[in-house]
Nucleic acid binder design. Sequence first.
RNA 1: GCGCCUGUAGCUCAGUCGGAUAGAGCAACGGCCUUCUAAGCCGUGGGCCAGGGGUUCGAAUCCCUUCAGGCGCGCCA
Length: 583
Amino acid sequence: MNIRLQIEQIVSKAFEAMGYDAALGEVTVSNRPDLCQFQCNGAMAAAKRYKANPFTVATAVVERLSQEPMFRSVEVARPGFINLSVTDAVIADTLTRMLADDRLGLPTMPPKTIVMDYGGANVAKPLHVGHLRTAIIGRSLSAVARFLGHRVITDVHLGDWGLQMGQVIALSAELYPDLPYFDADFTGPYPDVPPYDLAELDRIYPEASGRCKVDTEFAERAKQATAELQTGRPGYRALWQHIRAISVADLRRNYDRLDATFDLWYGESDAAPYVQPALQLLRDKGLLVESEGAMIVDVSRPEDTEPMPPILLVKSNGSDIYGSTDLATIYQREQDFHPDEMWYMVDTRQTLHFKQVFRCARLGGIASPETAFHHVNNGTINGSDGKPFKTRAGGVMRLSTLIDMAVEAAYEKTGSGEVQLSEETRRQVAETVGVAALKVGDLVNHRARDYIFDTERFLQSEGKTGPYLQYCAVRIQSVLKKAPEGTYTSLQNPASDTERDLMLCLQRVGDTLLRTHEEKAPNILCEMLFDIAGLFNRFYGETRILSCADEAQRASWLTLLTLTLRMLNLLLDLLGIQVPENM
RNA sequence: GCGCCUGUAGCUCAGUCGGAUAGAGCAACGGCCUUCUAAGCCGUGGGCCAGGGGUUCGAAUCCCUUCAGGCGCGCCA
């Protein structure tokens, strides 16, 4: 148990013993480190609630705490702040116990089954920079949840069933009319080899998409092709399989580089068999009604303050739409996993859509009433004009291009230090460092907010960046490598303010992980890493570790380095960031 | 038109769901490598938290309002 929690229990008991609500004993890390390490503001809340004098309440609480041996000081400040600091022995002892634990003393939660849907990749469309966020956020939140003890199932949920497939098929039919996929009378087996490669596919989609905007007749053919694909036209299905395979191979390459892994590589198409069962549930309840040729469900509620339009589930031409595939996916996930929670890491612009889908799933009994839905919305990556980021040429920047740029920038810098690296090592280091720069460049921003995309920022490796965190770990590794053989398992009291701050920082990681999970905000964890690394770097600058003549002191410091390194590695791993040996 | 979101240092962003003196990084300026990796450390300057009202012991945070920007509102996902 961390120090804050230990204090909280004691303070809560004091409040309770005085007849106040124990919850008033909530203890937080001090925001005035010059005055104290921890604080409790409950006396002021108590004063309000029980019509008492805050200073008197605080003083009475402090009275009860003064006997506790763990405190170095317990004071009341101005209106009614209770300021608390613990003895150095408590700090050293807590860290020593953390080090003895495989999990570094970090907490677990009562396990839940959580399906996390992130990635948002579309078949036939290359990943662009906009896909960076959901991949990185989903990757880190799923890892945090798993570490806290949850059973997490991640699903890339490919867009492989929508109009963009029909667009590609329609244009393919025009470009390669002689292929058997388009011959309705063709009976024999379709070719095993795809009709074109990734590069060709990359050309086809943008052209097809562009055509639809200016050529209504072509757009109609694309919609028709989509409908026929969904109803199972064999040639279209065969071609679609090829397109899917080509595309997925490419998506995997990109996601692998970001260390974004998925338990399930399902797509919308895998939910297709569940569309009818899901719709039937709605039909049985009389919720699915016809409107202008389409089928819709009214999901509004009397208490709504914001407008809540009906959700459209079947297009007038009979095709599925994302509303119905999303419901079918919920149906499938309920059946397969009975999850306690479903998280959707999707752009914030789809907020209304997910409200509709979640409500509809409840109304129709498609989801269990106990299943909690969360749209873990992420903001948009904008250009400096405040609109979704475009390259100078006006196009979207590919994710692979951005990764390459970051890795290249890291490569230029790698090996500029004093450690000589072989070319091969240099390449490997550049890959991990470049990717770390990208990831942290994104993760420092709050998940739900739009942010301005700046290439320079992502290529940076100084200051508040991924490489800064890696470099900190590399330095520790380097010291530990040069340290005398020995087992370092016990810490002495801190010898300086900086060392004490570092130790206090390490003991609050548990709280940070819980909050990261609760708020589904990886930037919280990211901030923690910078707190640790920043304090360590300061400590490192102030302290000559290896040349310290006092052997016990040196051993204690090496223990602290061991713990710090293990913590950095653990947290960086949760963010999907690797630490190189040297850099 | 209706609704949602955002506005914090020159720039990019944090800000622990009402707490004490609003923090980082970049950029600028000044220091620190013959001793553990300088992708580092130390220091300086920089703010009417968009504006205005309110709620209370106390507001960047909650309520109202004005202004500015973004996004969404049935056959794309």
